[in-house]
Design a protein around this nucleic acid. Sequence first.
DNA 1: ATTCGTTTTTTTTTT
DNA 2: AAAAACGAAT
Length: 735
Amino acid sequence: MNSLEKQMASLNSAQLQAVTLPPQSALILAGAGSGKTSVLTTRMAWLISTGQTRTQSILAVTFTNKAAKEMMTRLSALLPMNTRGMWVGTFHGLCNRFLRAHHREANLPATFQILDTQDQLSAIKRLLKSMQVDTEKFQPKQVQNFINGSKEDGLRPADVEANDYFYKKLVEIYTAYDAQCQREGVVDFPELLLRAYEVLKANEALRMHYQTRFTHVLVDEFQDTNTLQYAWLKLIASPQTVMMAVGDDDQSIYAFRGAKVENMRLFEREFAQHNVIKLEQNYRSYGHILNAANALISQNNNRLGKNLWTDRGEGEPIRIYEATSDYAEADFVIEEIKAQINEGAVRRDIAVLYRANAQSRVIEHALFNAGVPYRVYGGLRFFERAEIKHALAYLRLIDNPHDDTAFMRVVNFPTRGIGARTIEQLQDTAKSLNSSLWGAVQHASGSGAAKLLAFAQMIDGLRFDTQHLPLPELVDHVTAHSGLIAHYKADREGADRLENLSELINAAAAFVQVEGHKDSTTASETDEDDTMMTPLAGFLSHAALEAGDNQAQAGQDAVQLMTVHAAKGLEFNTVFILGLEEGLFPHENSLSDADGVQEERRLMYVAITRARVRLYMTLAQQRMLHGQTRYGIKSRFLDELSDDDVKWLTPRVRYDAWSNTAKATEDTPSFGTFKESKKDTLGYRVGQSVSHAKFGDGVIVKLEGSGEDTRAYINFGAGFGIKCLALNIAKLETH
DNA sequence: ATTCGTTTTTTTTTT
DNA sequence: AAAAACGAAT
């Protein structure tokens, strides 16, 4: 029995049905832990091994690079095959590949560069300045959201409805922004998709080519597709194409990026009429964990509906711990981790999840002090570090000197006497010539002209010197001769940055290895549309698209730290979910609308379902946030779990929203955190009715601290909920 | 032009 | 708390 046969024998009937589906489009509704990735990969292996299709005819789209890699690994384990010519990747990665191959049709330079979110924002700031737009009224971030949102809906400036002055102006900015990008030969994230879509739509020959080439299109995490991505999929699919969309509406957590869960219903109607398969058996988690997840998510409405079950037994209840502060929370987590490691747990099977990246610092600190190896995913990634972005900017200028964003980043870094004044003049010149900054250098006037020319010559020199160098040496040469190395050497706090720069050379070497390997296998295949990218251009788009996911201490067995978003698709034996406080999880920015809270709930659902065996949830009464101490109250999500599935490790304080008292039920031994004693609370008492200028009438449900430091939790009813106010500051009226 | 110190603003999640 | 923006001094 080969490995594919073995794999197929281990599937349950629903899974097997999905894998061996006849050539018709289908929607697979796959709950968390139901073996979704297995189904997808086994399906591909089965299609190939039964001779129903060739590797080149498969298009598989995932959402993260991690998932794409995982898919390839599993696939090659199932089936000894060459993965060349197979299109597996993220939407952005595939569209990049497509645009590189057809840059002429897309009206882009062969060396077009990709703007990441930061770059895009600075490009927008630059544009707003040159258009003399009031940035108070039109905030760069807001403009960015508008542009990206429009693109994600597939709308060009001409397609956006603008009825009032504000929107008309936004559309005007959008138009100018697109023109600026086009002139500079750069492309932002949503533009990758939109451009690819438009090329495909306008060019029938090309469309026919891809439609006949791809007989099978498989999409993972379909609930996270946005309007444009769905439209792109529809364009690449002919009526004969067999589409398989796999998704879970309960795990849709990317609405902020334009994702439309509705796409699942649309897909069902437009492709998979009655061809829907539900995968409802969960192989990952024990009963209590799954019950908790089910109970939580049942609070949402408009679900497609499914019933996830397991036959693994109850397992351990979810442990909930209320710490006095974020530091105490971290200490608790570290103690538990150490205990588990002592019991023989493997570090990489333990994950610490949090809502926002900023939360990682306290935990990192504690882990570091405890000497526990850990690895942080996300946060400030390798390719997002300032020194790396500087180095990349030099590399981008070598590839395409008209890239104004890169130009601006390094024209005066390290400082070479080109100040704000000179740049302003250069920008004016560029505007009047309708050229890039680079193009305007030749015509620069004023005192800084000579310095600008010297800078341009240096870039030209770098390009000339490195034209025949292999990529790693090229990177080495550029970091050394641009003055970056010298600059950080002179800085006594630049050691880390120097290290990162040499790490960049390693990354380039690693990139060449991987890509070079691909090239040598591709050579035999006559795949006419394979990409023609210079190694440098390839490396740069790699840097923009993958943001250095696995740069850090790879390979070492370490505790895993990441946001809940980053944890999607992963699973661990032990999971800690931190910061279960109102305002943090659910996050305050999403509390204003009901959809936002539902998305937060789905996020919590994703977090819970990551755990196989043991799950902890923690909260802190007091937390440093944005530079000041905040007093949080327990997350509503904790109330949505059944008491049968949880075990409080700390005394539990119940806030009954509509009564006047907070009841402390001591069903577990006290840890001494709730020492209640008679103390001075500025004359306030629990249960007292008060009134606040902004929040209206409320009732004190809990008092903390004493004297000047007395803080009160006050329930202001449905409108504002429970707030924590410092009584010596808050202006309250008593009645 | 650059540096250094002060003030203000901004804080979610990501390809 | 940290970054960015601003302003004054060098």
